[in-house]
């Protein structure tokens, strides 16, 4: 199959970017989207042109590095999948595919399709951890946790911090990410002692970094490759408000 790729090209963070159209890129339905970009890059290198810069690492949907906005969706049109899990069979032969970087003030473009997502690391560093030594692995069932809570904590912990939530949000809000990180600890007994401090610190850092305010459009939830629910945002709000009312 052949596709036309309309790709955002930007030489560096300060340069003015523009779309460049690459016609008749040869690929197959079973080739992944990132591999198609690899094929295009090889041809660009052969022609002596600058290859397209884009983020990628594990290519198995775990690391959250592949941050591309494809045909109006973060990670492309497939649901609950990252860009690296997107295959060309999702597109029609001869289709024009528009590829853009995440658009959010919190994620400035470094080059072409690569953005700086260190803001999420800074939010995580502000409180997304348990600071005391838990010791060795405890005996099974020594610390009873209900199945329901364990499941909710695990669901929240599946967030890979890819940034699709802020990229999808019309407000550039990072609240789905922050709420998932707050929830994965707040739901478990090991995370409770520092729950208030964590909620305060992570929300303060999120605000300081200039991310927007959630208006509950649910676009983040719809586009999240891990299906993180916005009920985590309700939990984050509860944790934050409880902490603030005690201050």
């Amino acid at each position: 199959m052949k596709v036309t790729l309309k790709v955002w090209r930007q030489a560096n963070a300060k340069a003015k970017g523009e779309f460049v159209t690459y016609k008749d890129v040869e690929t197959t339905p079973d080739t992944s989207f990132l591999e198609t970009l690899d094929i295009l890059n090889e041809s660009l290198v052969e022609r002596g042109e600058e290859p397209i810069t884009f983020d990628h690492d594990c290519r198995e949907g775990i690391c959250g590095m592949c941050s591309l906005y494809i045909n109006g969706h973060p990670h492309g049109p497939a649901t609950k999948a990252t860009t690296c899990q997107l295959y060309m069979r999702r597109f029609k032969d001869g289709e024009t595919i528009t590829v853009e970087p995440w658009r959010s003030a919190g994620f400035p473009v470094i080059k072409d399709l690569m953005v700086d997502r260190s803001a999420y690391d800074k939010i995580q560093q502000a409180g997304g951890y348990v600071s005391f030594n838990c010791g060795g692995a405890p005996d099974a069932n020594a610390l009873p946790i209900s199945k329901e809570k364990a499941d909710l904590a695990m669901d929240a912990a599946t967030c890979i911090g890819c940034g699709a939530c802020a990229a999808a949000c019309k407000n550039g809000s990072a609240m789905l990410f922050v709420s998932a990180k707050i929830s994965q600890f707040a739901l478990l007994p090991q995370g409770r002692p520092e729950a208030a401090r964590r909620a305060r610190a992570m929300v303060a850092k999120m605000d300081e970094l200039g991310f927007g305010n959630c208006t509950n459009t649910r676009a983040c939830e719809a586009e999240c490759p891990k299906g993180i629910s916005i009920t985590n945002i309700a939990r984050m709000n509860r944790e934050f408000l409880k902490a603030k009312f005690k201050d």
Partner: peptide
């Protein structure tokens, strides 16, 4: 604040997911 957080450059191609009212 939200407009500022969204940044100056908007997506060229944007689709509203079905579950978004």
């Amino acid at each position: 604040q939200n407009r500022r957080a969204r940044g100056n450059v908007r997506y060229a191609y944007s689709v509203r997911p079905k579950m978004v009212e």
